[in-house]
Design a protein around this nucleic acid. Structure first.
Lengths: 255, 255
DNA sequence: CATGTTCTTGCATGTTTATGCATCTTTTGT
DNA sequence: ACAAAAGATGCATAAACATGCAAGAACATG
């Protein structure tokens, strides 16, 4: 077996499983442990993996400006993300806009489903793990560096040409009475356009988003179809009365 | 057996099995190892295979996403990037397409200049350090996960609405006689569109790009305005005779 | 047909690369 | 803290490689 062929195979296994064990590789390829270690060293040098004791793992993805916020409350977000990603069905077209929670959701999307993912957040496009079943469409236009998303007229026009089954909205504020709100006018525009062109509206909200009210209204609370919350964060009843399907995620630490 | 007949046969075997072994080919065709190596060298030059120790493999299906390739030869790229970024003038509109070198260039762009940066690579948009003097425009469309860029018709249409002062092209192959080439048809399309809508064409090339020839032609070598190379990588004279301004970057490591 | 040129090929040469082994150091789990 | 597993490092070797050269075939030209 050729050296580079082996390197390719290891890369492949890595992207499939996220990790490889040096022993397994040596047995699999019929070479010595030393050779495998050399291979892993080389791959690590090229940035294709991080070496760890016993094998190697995929490198931590670098996802740009959204990533700074990503480390915040990472555990809760991961749980919210998993629960939200589970709402997606095979064959759907999904709008995802910019937010650190949505970045986590994008990464948690089931890899075995055929999906069309439409986003105005470049970081979300780059963060999606390479997956031939996912078609990714980027909405272009003027890029707002502070929001990490494309906003503005051109972006809205592009969004208007697409109808999605679900919009996963990165909300700024949610209130039973006052509805879903955004902090910024241009942000609000594109979100409204996406809401108008989606069958289902899904919001995953960390606790701080509830009872917050931002200046620009996006939609009534009743427009929400799925609301994913941390358990104990808020009373789900008012939402349920509005016909919102509320999903509670347990946020307890280790039992 | 004719030489070209042999080359065809090797191409055939390659596309069937994904790899060929030099020894096997020599035995199969009844020629010496040297001849086979010469054949493989030629096929590699034409971009039909990648030579590896012991034989050859099909061209890298994907050498990894943009962020992964970034760490590759980071030191040289940083030097190339600085030199290339210095070619940009205040007030210019710049096309930057996807490549790891271009990612480095984007990060090295002078922060005190007012610039309009247009890119089809989401990773480049997110990587640009937050800077109020830089206006960033993302070209949307279908996102090619292996290339880390938006390709396809919609992206081209968006690019066609913009005229830039300079295009910083992430090239796949450069040859004095055969010009600038790309590995992939869809990639080639968008690059051609950008070339057609830019006054100046700038290419920063690591050594491996020179004398490489990929299947799809983008432009004649004479179309290049600025070519940034590592010193000693290639003879700049042929390019200078074509009226290309060649900038050499010293790549000496630690003394 | 004669002659000069180009192209291909194989061989000899010196160099580089991949690999396994032995030895020593580091990390990990108990 | 200690033993076992994993890793690093240096070395030896065989295979693969590049390069220059020469013989021969194919080709062009007069």
């Amino acid at each position: 077996m050729l050296t580079d062929e082996r390197l390719d195979a290891i890369r492949q296994l890595l992207s499939e499983n996220g990790k490889v064990l040096a022993n397994d590789l040596a047995a699999k390829f019929g070479v010595s442990d030393d050779t495998v270690r050399r291979d892993l060293r080389e791959l690590a040098r090229l940035g294709h993996c991080r070496r760890v004791y016993g094998g190697a793992l995929l490198p931590a993805p670098d996802t740009g400006s959204l990533s700074v916020r990503t480390t915040d409350r990472a555990d809760q977000k991961a749980r919210l993300a998993t629960a939200t990603a589970a709402l997606v069905r095979n064959g759907q077209t999904i709008f995802i806009d910019a937010s650190s929670t949505n970045l986590a959701i994008a990464q948690a999307l089931p890899k075995d489903l055929t999906l069309m993912i439409v986003t105005n957040a470049p970081a979300i496009a780059t963060a999606l793990s390479k997956n031939p079943k996912h078609t990714i469409m980027v909405l272009g236009g003027l890029y707002d560096q502070s929001k990490g998303a494309c906003l503005g007229l051109q972006t809205i026009r592009e969004a208007e040409q697409i109808f999605a089954d679900m919009f996963i909205l990165g909300a700024c504020g949610i209130d039973t009475a006052l509805g879903v709100t955004a902090l910024d006018a241009s942000e609000a525009e594109i979100k409204r356009a996406m809401i108008a062109r989606s069958s289902l509206l899904t919001i995953a909200a960390t606790t701080d988003k509830l009872s917050t009210i931002a200046p620009f209204k996006l939609a009534d609370a009743a427009r929400i179809d799925h609301l994913v919350l941390e358990a104990g964060a808020a009373d789900p009843e008012p939402y349920r009365r509005l016909d919102v399907e509320v999903h509670l995620v347990t946020t307890d630490g280790v039992p």
